[in-house]
Write a protein that binds this DNA or RNA. Structure first.
Length: 205
DNA sequence: CTGACGATTCACT
DNA sequence: GTGAATCGTCAGC
């Protein structure tokens, strides 16, 4: 079990990083409650040339400023006035690449996760979208700018789990129809349904 | 200062 | 499959 360091996130290819985050564990420790889940879905946002990215065309605002920061910094923003969406910034400073974590399988701190989600048992819907992932792990927009490399509140672990390539499916990103041709790029990565079912059974059958 | 809207979720049909 | 919820952000005036 090893915490991912700067060398993992600092690489230039955000699509590669996005695919390699599948099977890693996102861990948070807010309010002395350790919670975690295995990442099973991500999307890559490829900087200033990506029409789907908040940094398209070099756009720079108070909200997205952290995307131009060091690799490993989290970018959390409010979507639809309700949902806190969690990203990890990659590449070097001034290059606003980021990976959106879209789904996890809850692993540690299940009671806290259920309480946050107002549920009584873990199902595949507990953290199957970017808004529910943040809710399950207690991530809020106020946490934008925290680094998963040196913060004691959030980090990413490699627990030695590897999936065969064919178990990780690439496809177009969700909810980015406005991005024209870029909406079709295969920047979304998902662990196959079969693998997800198998792991859910291991933990929760 | 104002208004339009979003990298979504959930309940309901 | 459809539509409501809900509010910070940002472009434009």
């Amino acid at each position: 079990m090893e915490k991912l360091g700067k060398e993992f996130f600092r690489r230039k290819n955000v699509v590669t990083i996005s695919s390699e985050l599948i099977g890693k564990f996102l861990v948070t420790n807010f309010g002395n409650m350790l919670t975690s889940g295995m990442i099973i879905e991500t999307e890559a946002y490829n900087g200033v040339t990506d029409k789907a990215s908040h940094a398209y065309g070099g756009k720079r605002t108070k909200r997205n400023e952290v995307m131009y920061g060091e690799s490993g910094i989290s970018y959390v923003y409010l979507c639809y006035g309700i949902h806190h969406l969690f990203n990890i910034v990659t590449n070097e400073e001034e290059i606003p690449h980021a990976v959106l974590v879209r789904a996890i399988i809850p692993v540690d701190g299940v009671p806290a996760i259920l309480k946050r989600r107002k549920q009584t048992s873990i199902t595949k819907k507990t953290a199957n979208g970017p808004g529910t992932v943040s809710q399950a792990l207690g991530i809020k927009t106020a946490n934008s700018g925290l680094s998963v490399i040196d913060s004691k509140f959030m980090w990413v672990e490699d627990r030695g789990i590897k999936f065969p390539k064919k178990e990780i499916n690439a496809g177009p990103r969700i909810g980015v129809d406005y991005a024209g041709e870029d909406a079709k790029l295969p920047y979304r990565f998902r662990l196959s349904d079969n693998s997800v079912k198998r792991i859910m059974n291991e933990y929760y059958s």
